[in-house]
Design a binder for these strands. Structure first.
Lengths: 100, 100
DNA sequence: CCCACACATACGCTTGCGCTTATATACGCC
DNA sequence: GGCGTATATAAGCGCAAGCGTATGTGTGGG
């Protein structure tokens, strides 16, 4: 499983969104996805950790999860060369509007 | 199939990379992936078209595929707040999330 | 016309993901 | 030590993704 597949799963993107705000315990993350059981969320967290998108530190009997920014940067690096495409597209659109 | 799942497939990222350089016929794209058969590539192109990442125009009996920038921008929009995060602009990220 | 070429679709198969239920592990508290 | 809590792992299942083979569709050329 690579970082692209990890991010393709909607529940995992939901978890990343929460961790972008602040660190969360595993239990808080389980509560944030009431449609899923605790083992299902635990598996998602394991995958996110394996691809380097989050990191975990134990705190007593709890596990605190935190966003690890390096992982998403790999996606950003991939998308960078494409970014010029829609910039050119926008430039062309703006020019079109200005010429009216 | 959404744009995240579409991009999660390595062969489809390969096709997008070629289309970022220039437009290609379906046959050229088939030749670029010798490990896959022609129908396999055709299905990948169909998926990329369905999620709005590429567009196709017929040219006689050939089909010319071109990159469509709007699709990847949806991924870029999603990743934008995280980009600020790994650049240590933590305050900007939190503000962005709170304003959603 | 008819055939070759370029490409798409149909179908069946295998494989891996994501889920649930059940169970294991680890820690805190009394 | 013994028990409840927090979290992870195991086992099994349904389903959809991705693949190849076979076939359909449309276009150009002789």
């Amino acid at each position: 499983m690579d970082v692209f597949e990890a991010v393709a799963e909607p529940n995992r993107r939901h978890l990343l969104g929460l961790l972008a705000e602040r660190d969360h315990t595993a239990g808080e993350l389980v509560d944030s996805l009431p449609a899923l059981t605790q083992p299902a969320v635990s598996r998602h967290l394991r995958i996110l950790r394996e691809v380097g998108l989050v990191e975990m530190r134990p705190d007593g009997q709890r596990r605190i999860y935190a966003l690890k920014p390096d992982g998403l940067q790999r996606i950003d690096d991939w998308i960078t060369p494409y970014r010029r495409y829609w910039r050119n597209h926008l430039d062309a659109l703006e020019q079109h509007l200005e010429n009216r």
